[in-house]
Simulated scan of single mutants.
Amino acid sequence: MITHATQDHLKALVALENSLFSNDDFPLSRGSFSYHIKKNDLFVFIHEGEVAGYILWLKRKRYYRLYSLGVSVECRGRGMAQELLSYSFTLLKAQSYTLEVKTTNLSAISLYEKFGFAKQKILKGYYPNNRDGYLMRRQDNDETQKL
């Protein structure tokens, strides 16, 4: 089941985040999750009564930015990330969507490409330890949108 995150999910979101991301990757804090629950589109995937994944979107004037997506290690390979993305596109209506991803995260890049995201440019040194990223965008119409 996928639903909007609430403050009741906060402890589980922080635990999941800390299990997925090292300090070098700047995991979201309890305060950050609390803020995003109130101000942005944060959806959680509930599996067997527990938060098994989440997706966080930031609304901009004319597009949405995928800020973070995480699925527990135990639940990977079950299509939860795909379901979170599908659910998001059903609810969030925009002409374009963007995200940043490490150039080395091949499984995430493959997933995003399946959902119509295309690499727009290389972001040199975007991530900690001078790691490069890609800016990716999905257009939901034929018009070119300026970010």
Rank of each mutant, 00 (worst) to 15 (best):
E83V: 03
E83L: 07
E83Y: 03
E83D: 12
L84A: 08
L84E: 03
L84C: 13
L85S: 07
L85P: 06
L85I: 15
L85G: 07
L85A: 07
L85W: 04
S86Y: 00
S86C: 04
S86T: 11
S86W: 00
S86D: 02
Y87K: 05
Y87P: 09
Y87S: 03
S88H: 03
S88Y: 08
S88L: 04
S88A: 08
S88K: 10
F89N: 11
F89K: 01
F89H: 14
F89T: 11
F89W: 04
T90Y: 10
T90E: 13
T90N: 11
T90K: 14
T90A: 14
T90W: 08
L91N: 11
L91G: 10
L91D: 03
L91Q: 14
L92E: 05
L92G: 01
L92Q: 02
L92T: 00
L92M: 04
L92I: 00
K93V: 15
K93N: 13
K93I: 15
K93A: 05
K93Q: 14
A94W: 00
A94Y: 01
A94F: 02
A94N: 01
A94H: 01
Q95S: 08
Q95W: 00
S96F: 09
S96T: 13
Y97L: 00
Y97V: 00
Y97S: 02
Y97H: 03
Y97P: 02
T98R: 01
T98H: 05
T98A: 03
L99Y: 06
L99V: 09
L99S: 10
L99D: 04
L99P: 08
L99A: 11
E100R: 01
E100F: 08
E100G: 02
E100A: 06
E100Y: 08
V101A: 09
V101I: 12
V101H: 02
K102N: 10
K102V: 00
T103S: 11
T103G: 09
T103F: 05
T103D: 07
T104S: 15
T104C: 05
N105T: 07
N105E: 09
N105R: 02
L106Y: 07
L106I: 04
L106H: 07
S107T: 13
S107V: 08
S107E: 14
S107D: 13
S107K: 14
S107Q: 15
S107W: 04
A108I: 07
A108V: 06
I109Q: 12
I109G: 10
I109P: 12
I109E: 11
I109H: 11
S110A: 15
S110C: 12
S110F: 14
S110I: 07
S110T: 14
S110R: 10
L111H: 08
L111C: 01
L111W: 12
L111V: 01
L111F: 09
L111P: 10
Y112P: 12
Y112A: 10
Y112M: 13
Y112V: 08
Y112S: 12
Y112C: 13
E113P: 11
E113W: 06
E113H: 11
E113S: 13
E113D: 10
K114T: 13
K114N: 15
K114E: 15
F115N: 12
G116M: 12
G116W: 14
G116R: 14
F117S: 07
F117I: 06
F117T: 01
F117M: 05
